[in-house]
């Protein structure tokens, strides 16, 4: 019994789970960050009750400081799942963290009641300091996430610029290898680069190679058709190459047809076709 007496947190969690829960729910419902548009009170209540129970069990071990220890495994599992579900629902990182932080008030309140001799003034000052530091940490988390998102956005933009080269492989023949996904923004860049290159090189034929496109859904197909149509308006003939067997099959199922677009299985086939169109021939040297 001595170890239980030595640990007031474990004691409070074991003896007053219901009071803790009610106070905690009250705090969460009154908080400015509560997201009742994303989650109902019943769900908040269930999650809060479960965490109190798990905390109680973990604290019974006597370890109330090292949450990486084995006896805290179930608490960590619970929090991992909660974090994932809240992220899915659209909670921000700080709103997710607030769920746990808001438990501090009821927990400390309970502990204070257990020691009536505590100086009220001192307690209030300490509480203020604690909340202040929490708020600073949350602000930092928010700013950190924002700057990380900005880095990712910038990298995406740079990648888009890099990944849409237009190559002149022969006089009058352009090749546009597309690698990755073709979305609306990317199509815009691809189309601009291609049309620009058609004007600059006065090319007759543009080969759009999709060997590096993992899948063609109706959206990608539509973007390809738009690009081909625009190139045609500029007076260039287009060939779409690199249509792999599994992509051909899914396109048939989808009902997408490149009816009036010249297509070839490989880039080599497309190039041979382009040479033929321009009345050119590749011949082998008849030496020795």
């Amino acid at each position: 019994m001595t170890s239980e007496q030595a640990n007031p947190i474990a004691q409070v969690l074991r003896e007053h789970p219901q009071d803790l829960l009610e106070q905690w729910i009250q705090v969460q419902m009154d908080a400015p960050w509560v997201r009742l548009d994303l989650i109902g009170e019943a769900e908040i209540r269930a999650q809060s009750a479960e965490l109190i129970e798990l905390l109680g069990a973990a604290c019974q071990s006597g370890n109330v400081s090292d949450i990486q220890a084995d006896e805290w495994g179930r608490v960590r599992d619970f929090l991992r799942e909660l974090s994932r579900s809240r992220a899915t629902l659209g909670f921000s990182p700080t709103e997710t963290a607030q769920f746990v932080l808001s438990f501090k008030m009821p927990l400390i309140n309970m502990l204070r009641q257990a020691s009536p001799s505590l100086d009220m003034q001192v307690w209030q000052t300490m509480w203020q300091a604690s909340v202040l530091v929490d708020d600073l940490a949350l602000y930092l988390l928010d700013v950190y996430m924002t700057s990380r998102e900005q880095v990712i956005k910038r990298q995406q933009m740079e990648l888009m610029e890099l990944s849409t080269p237009v190559v002149q492989v022969w006089e009058g023949i352009l090749v546009l290898p597309i690698i990755g996904t073709l979305d609306t923004a990317r199509t815009q860049v691809v189309m601009e680069n291609l049309l620009q290159a058609i004007v600059e090189t006065a090319s007759d034929i543009a080969i759009i190679d999709i060997t590096g496109v993992p899948m063609v859904d109706t959206s990608v197909a539509q973007h390809l058709i738009k690009t081909v149509t625009a190139a045609r308006l500029m007076g260039a003939r287009c060939i779409v190459s690199g249509i792999r067997p599994q992509i051909a099959q899914t396109m048939v199922n989808l009902g997408v047809t490149f009816a009036d677009i010249t297509t070839r299985a490989s880039l080599a086939d497309a190039l041979a076709y382009a040479f033929a169109q321009l009345n050119m021939r590749v011949t082998r040297n008849e030496s020795s």
Partner: peptide
């Protein structure tokens, strides 16, 4: 082919 089919349907 199964991968491509399901991934394409999911994409749509």
């Amino acid at each position: 082919i199964a991968q491509t089919r399901l991934a394409t349907a999911v994409s749509e």
